[in-house]
């Protein structure tokens, strides 16, 4: 399996808004903590080691 890098979320603007809404009212530190939990939750959902490696590499690019 390969990491999907083409659009896969039907309502991109809606998801972005939902992401911000989920963080609403959190301090910056609390938001970082929530993001860390979100990474773990989504990573477990994906599960596939190759996809996760590719995702880590893509996210790291340009950092």
């Amino acid at each position: 399996m390969a990491l999907m890098t083409t659009p896969n979320i039907s309502d991109a603007d809606g998801f972005y808004a939902a992401l911000l809404a989920a963080h609403k009212g959190l301090s910056e530190a609390e938001s970082h903590a929530m993001n860390a939990r979100l990474v773990l939750v989504l990573a477990n959902h994906i599960g596939d080691a190759t996809v996760l490696q590719q995702a880590l590499a893509l996210a790291r690019e340009g950092a």
Partner: peptide, 23 residues
């Protein structure tokens, strides 16, 4: 920093979701 962030994230999730327990 980030090591503590993820460690605490795992502990936080472990009581809520099975997947985090083996971590």
């Amino acid at each position: 920093g980030v090591e503590r962030l993820f460690r605490d994230a795992v502990l936080h999730l472990a009581s809520r979701a099975d997947f985090a327990r083996p971590m």
